[in-house]
């Protein structure tokens, strides 16, 4: 019906406007037409590419501004996983005496925490894209997806540093401590694992941020939900220690495959199965695809409801 309204008025206009002008306009080529709605699959990748400089500047901004005016600065990148690792080691390792597949406690927990943090950062920090950037989005247009992409990339840098930190511990345990750890060829899957975590976080984040432009309910669930999800993943315990009847639930968590593959490759122990990883891959592809579609659809008009 909205089409009908347009056509009627358009016809009236034609009668009024002089013939010459009409002809002139017919020849006119437009570089862009702003329409009320965009189709589900109208994603302008070309435009996103044109804004790549902005993407890198956002990454730089995020990275540079985080620890400005703090004394320890980037050292905070390391303190956070270190403290969490100590806490887990004491709580779950020493007091609760949970299994770690015979791996050194610190390495076991730290590997899980480092991975989980990256996923969690990608997820939670992209999930409020629309609400927390409403100010800037309301004043200027650029492809909105640049913001969540920049979050994923700037957190990747942080993750990279934490990973190197983890490798230092690995070297210590391998050389000095002589612990029973060894890398397997599956460590070559590491880049894929990073892509999976980033993709999952980004996809889920985009879905949540699109859903929360109008109704904020999901946002209140989020922090709590992500924390629960961590307890439902092998960050704290290895899959091998699970009773059969709960195994299914933990394996349903798409991060399970990622974490177990990582531990198997880096430390030599873990429930690595190609099937688990396949599940994570499929999950990531689906979530990322859905996220892109919803995000692209919402970005056009969200300013009216945010």
């Amino acid at each position: 019906m909205s089409m009908n309204i347009n056509m009627n008025t358009a016809q009236e206009l034609k009668i009024v406007s002089p013939l010459t002008e009409e002809k002139e306009e017919a020849d006119q080529k437009w570089s862009e037409v702003i329409k009320p709605k965009v189709g589900w699959f109208e994603i302008n990748f070309n435009e996103i590419w044109n804004y790549r400089d902005l993407l890198m500047l956002f990454v730089r901004r995020d990275f540079v501004s985080i620890y400005k005016q703090s004394i320890l600065g980037p050292i905070w990148f390391f303190i956070q996983p270190l403290l969490a690792t100590f806490a887990f080691t004491i709580l779950f390792g020493r007091i609760a005496e949970m299994s770690t597949d015979g791996l050194p406690l610190i390495l076991f927990y730290m590997s899980g925490i480092t991975l989980w943090n990256y996923f969690q950062d990608c997820f939670t920090k992209t999930s409020n894209t629309f609400t927390s950037n409403a100010g800037i989005f309301g004043k200027v247009y650029f492809p909105r997806i640049i913001v969540p992409l920049s979050v994923v990339i700037s957190n990747l840098i942080k993750f990279g540093l934490q990973f190197i930190f983890l490798l230092c511990f690995w070297l210590y345990f391998f050389k000095v401590d002589g612990a029973q750890i060894y890398m397997r060829k599956e460590i070559l899957l590491f880049p894929l694992l990073v892509v999976l975590m980033a993709g999952m976080g980004l996809g889920l984040g985009m879905i949540i941020s699109s859903l929360t432009t109008k109704y904020r309910d999901f946002q209140y669930m989020l922090t709590f939900g992500v924390q629960l999800l961590m307890y439902g993943s092998p960050v704290i315990y290895p899959v091998s220690s699970l009773p059969e009847k709960y195994k299914f639930f933990i394996l349903a968590n798409p991060m399970t495959g990622v974490i177990e593959t990582f531990r198997y490759g880096l430390l030599g122990q873990g429930a690595y199965q190609f099937g688990y990883l396949c599940y994570s891959i499929i999950f990531t592809v689906v979530v990322l695809f859905l996220g892109l579609l919803v995000f692209n659809r919402v970005q056009k008009n969200f300013m009216d409801t945010v």
């Binding site: 909205s2 309204i5 347009n6 006119q28 080529k29 437009w30 570089s31 862009e32 037409v33 702003i34 329409k35 009320p36 709605k37 965009v38 989005f137 309301g138 004043k139 200027v140 247009y141 056009k300 008009n301 969200f302 300013m303 009216d304």
Partner: peptide
């Protein structure tokens, strides 16, 4: 706001030639 693509129109089109 509509012209600068911050938000979209409810009905109608805006045709632009150039950046």
């Amino acid at each position: 706001k509509l012209l600068s693509k911050v938000t979209g129109p409810t009905l109608g089109n805006i045709k632009v030639n150039g950046r």
